[in-house]
Amino acid sequence: MLNFIIQRLLSGIGVLFFISIITFVVLMWIPGNPALLSLGTDATPEKVEALKESMGLHVPWYEQYINWLIGFLSGDWGTSYVFGEEILILITQRLPVTLSLAALSLTIAIPFAVMFGVISALYQNKWIDYMARSLMQLGDAVPQFWLALLFLVFFAAGYGWFPVAGFTPMEEGFWVSVHSILLPSIVLAIGQVGPLIRIIRSSMLSSLEQDYMLMTRVNGLSRTRAIGKYALRGAIIAPLTIVGMQLAGILGGAVLVESIFALPGIGRLLLMAVEQRDLILLQGVVFFITSAVVIVNIITDILYRLVNPMIRFGGNHE
């Protein structure tokens, strides 16, 4: 187990290293002149030189990379060109919004997905299964930004059930805050439900076919108990691992949803960085998001092994 954790951490660090190189190369090296990009068309040569100097671009690229990495690791993520503020501060300011959005959307998505996944497996090829599967297909095909737009029109602007824009922080009351991000969270949750149902359904189906289910019949257990205690336990553990993957989807969706609902989160920040060509800010946000995805995946991987005795004790087998 310890071996696995170390191995997983090492490969995670490897992936992070590559991500840092990819973001660095793409943003700082390929276009040749990020200073020029940042300043746009009205840049005078003096301005460019000055900005280059301040961005640390006057040294060779590998030195730039090492400087950037050292700075990054020591908490100096650079200063945003557009906001004129430290990037780390900009991110931490906006983090609560995106985190609440992610947490609330998972809180909505997971119970629904478990319910529909399990029911649709129990009634395989019955109408309710077909319905769940159709919803799944539809959920995968409906663009989140369109859904967000429609929800905004009908539920926020039309019926006035929800605020049209903006985020109310936790300090002003838990439920007020939840209410302010409920609609965007539902949109994000709808995007998550499809893949979650799919994996829970298939893992439940395979659990139902296991021999321990035959044993529950030999022992004369009621179907409720057989499903509740045996089938569910076999089915619920595998989907754990993809919750980490889901985070990537949520963060990707957050860019669009935050933009539509005017929520001041990381996604909005990212979009601004792209629109304003603030490459240093973009680099910071991108690396922050991808690292979060990688780290959460490592954690879920390790958790999965901790709760799964088949792997935890696998070494003692025969």
């Binding site: 296991q210 021999d211 321990y212 044993m215 045996y230 336990r233 553990i237 799964n308 005795p309």
Partner: peptide
């Protein structure tokens, strides 16, 4: 050869 005992219980 087969898992008649539930592996997670």
């Amino acid at each position: 050869t087969i898992a008649f005992l539930h592996p997670l219980i």
